[in-house]
Design a protein around this nucleic acid. Structure first.
Lengths: 233, 233
DNA sequence: GCTCGACTGTGACTTTGGTCGCAGCGCTGT
DNA sequence: ACAGCGCTGCGACCAAAGTCACAGTCGAGC
């Protein structure tokens, strides 16, 4: 069992609960349990019955579906302040996907019943939850759009552009950033296989749009890249 | 402007509001506006700013994404008692997808602000909304799973099996049902094109699994069909 | 140093998905 | 009746995705 003060301070950093009074804080913190998961560890699997809400104090979690044939599709990656498994808290069903820790992570856990009760007493929190779930819904719709309308090449480019915008730093030849994981990981996020990621990266390099050096990518021709995104061919 | 009594009775049939008191009913009904949409009409398009919540009194709505190249992907079809555009009500963003009427439909519209206020005063309604949004989230995850792991053939079979279970009636040769729309419509739901639907239907018939007669399908070999679903090849 | 293992690049091939064009069919409206 | 239109069934063809096998590279650990 962690010290309550510790838990409360961790909760404070979570945007979900950002405008609660100190009293409400203590109330919620009293029900939260701190848990630790090491890199690669599973929090739960698709189909498990839902026990409660997980909030990320530190670390990074990956929400994903896996298929019978070993393929994987990442649905979301959540960092500190994010939450996971919000929905079955409210409809009581099983988890629709699995979650594992990308890095060592500190998780705050609040049981289903405690959180429901808390929402009924603090409707603003319920509305915030709706906003959070809504944001996730948007991202899922985005994934569906990419899966059904875009080629692997386009999905890869779109991921690269996003990375360049969020984690890129300007260098002499263009915007530079590091791939967050292996080609395999990236393939899982794009819903495809390793080879296609590798091939397409090389192809983009051959076309002079990017520069690949191990796991470091330099975007040489950003307009050229984005042009790929809305080429209907 | 419709008669208030009319509106209230329509709201009563909606599961979302099933356990409200008569007083609360009147309050909500006072803010609802009845609208009519004819078959094929657009309620709104992806990217429009959100005005409020739409509840289906009668008819059927189709939530879908469409691509630049004319392709479509159906995200959900909602019938009477269902609602549409729940999420931007809470996060204030734009609609993530377009919605059109599959049939002539009566819609109850409640403005964003009115509904937010109502949720704050009636937290149970907010929790119910969360359950509704959660259900939609599950369906989206299901779509993602099918898109990234299943072939068109498998997706088609899965749709056929679902139709057989929900709308099928036993006949001499097997379970019989009608396709709910054209091959084109079905293709949109599966995220593919007409020709593949047509071809795969013919192929399933050639394999002796189903019998196709115009828009009427007879499932001859249900086990054979379901076997396709988990063949990893 | 060396080995081992994880990661990456690549070539050849198969399967699946998608495009184009067209012909036939059945219905509707005039 | 018949012109027109929407829906369906093909066949030929092309592009994208995925599989398999293998070789090279880089680091960690012994």
């Amino acid at each position: 069992m962690p010290e309550p003060g510790n838990v409360a301070s961790a909760l404070g950093a979570v945007s979900l609960f950002s405008n609660l009074s100190p009293d409400e804080f203590r109330l919620l913190a009293a029900h939260a349990v701190r848990r630790h998961f090491s890199q690669g560890e599973l929090l739960f699997q698709e189909g498990d019955v839902c026990k409660g809400l997980h909030i990320i104090a530190s670390g990074k979690l990956r929400i994903f579906k896996s298929s019978a044939s070993g393929r994987e599709q990442v649905l979301a990656v959540e960092g500190p302040g994010g939450s996971v498994a919000e929905l079955p808290v409210f409809d009581g069903g099983t988890y629709p996907a699995s979650v594992s820790a990308v890095e060592d992570s500190q998780i705050l856990f609040i049981s289903r019943d405690d959180f429901r009760r808390f929402c009924l007493e603090h409707p603003e929190v319920a509305l915030k939850m709706l906003a959070v779930v809504g944001a996730r819904l948007r991202r899922l719709v985005g994934i569906i759009e990419e899966l059904s309308f875009a080629t692997v090449r386009q999905r890869l480019v779109s991921a690269l552009v996003r990375l360049a915008q969020t984690h890129g730093t300007p260098s002499e030849r263009g915007i530079e950033f590091q791939l967050p994981g292996t080609h395999q990981d990236l393939a899982h996020q794009l819903g495809t296989v390793r080879e296609l990621v590798s091939r397409n990266l090389m192809r983009l390099q051959a076309e002079g749009l990017i520069q690949v050096e191990a796991r470091s990518i330099t975007v040489v021709d950003l307009p050229g890249l984005t042009a790929i995104l809305d080429s209907s061919s």
